[in-house]
Amino acid sequence: MIGHYTLTGPEDAPVLVLGNALGTTTELWRDFSLPFRLLRFDHRGHGGSAPVEGPCTIEDLACDVVDLLDHLELRQVYYCGVSLGGMIGMWLAAHTDRISRLALMCTTAWYPDKSVWDERIEVLRSYGMEPLADTIVSRWFTPAFSPAVVAHFRAELLKVDVPSYIACAEAIRDMDLRPDLAKIDVPTVVIAAAQDHATPPEFARHIADELPASELYIVGDAAHLAIVEAPRTISVILDGHFGND
């Protein structure tokens, strides 16, 4: 259930939905600007959205977005998602007709090594977020990136409801969207970051290779949250993609 969202921008412009990475909120897009009506939202237990008890799947999280679109009476939209947001975007584009153009950023269709998620979930259940915060955030940004921005995102991470984070982490661990890729027939841009160790560029290449209509870009000086480190570069890519409809 999505409890918090913002819808800003020209009322006569196409709506572009922005899906966040796990552990982040609508703050992910604070330096992002495109000439569209931007719909930002927080996942379950993140930011201003209340926790939802129990486990969930990528399908459940995607259906949260469908419910939000229904609530706002939005029949079809553009969609751009980072990491978990991208996984949700793939499911939506494969299983619904609500997405007319798609952008997938620093994401993957599956994780071949699930042990990393098992270990993270075990620590979270035993000790909470604090012991993992530095490790998680270090994978989000390159070492030389702004310490003040890194500290801000670390603080936002620590506010996330831990059971909700675990539920979303389990959804990521257990997903396999590879069979869905062939079902995605909307124009898609796939963006990777050269220094992203969470979802390396080879994951993006696999997605792009499987999609019937896609373009692949690799941003050099950025890690997992490339939208924060390289917003201008990515805005140019996305403006070219969504502006071609």
Rank of each mutant, 00 (worst) to 15 (best):
H71R: 13
D64T: 00
E215A: 07
Y79E: 08
V17N: 10
G47N: 10
D180E: 12
L158Q: 02
A222M: 10
V65T: 06
A171I: 09
L16H: 02
I218P: 00
S146F: 10
P51M: 14
L84Q: 14
V137E: 00
L211R: 12
L61F: 04
D245M: 08
T142W: 06
C80H: 06
L177H: 05
L34Q: 00
M129R: 15
A148H: 04
Q195F: 13
R30Y: 01
C56A: 13
D42H: 00
D209H: 08
K159T: 10
C106D: 14
S126Y: 00
L61N: 09
E210H: 03
I58Q: 04
R173Y: 03
V228P: 04
A198Y: 03
D67A: 11
A109P: 15
V77L: 02
L181Y: 02
G220W: 07
C168Y: 02
A182S: 10
L92F: 08
S115V: 15
L124E: 14
M1T: 02
R40F: 02
P212E: 01
A222E: 04
P187G: 12
H95K: 15
D42R: 00
M90E: 12
L92H: 02
P35C: 09
T108E: 04
A94V: 07
C63R: 06
A213N: 05
D60V: 09
G240N: 14
A167M: 08
P163R: 06
R40Q: 12
G54N: 06
S214N: 03
E170H: 05
M1E: 05
P55I: 10
L18R: 06
L102P: 12
A198F: 04
G128L: 07
A222Q: 02
P163W: 04
D196F: 03
L177R: 03
D239K: 10
A21G: 14
H46A: 04
A109L: 03
V186G: 08
E119V: 12
G47V: 01
M129L: 13
L238F: 00
R125I: 04
D60Q: 04
R101H: 15
R178W: 00
S100T: 13
I227R: 12
A169W: 05
R154Y: 04
I99T: 11
A204R: 04
L181C: 05
S146R: 11
D185S: 11
G19R: 07
A109R: 14
C106A: 14
L7H: 05
D185T: 15
G19Y: 06
A223H: 01
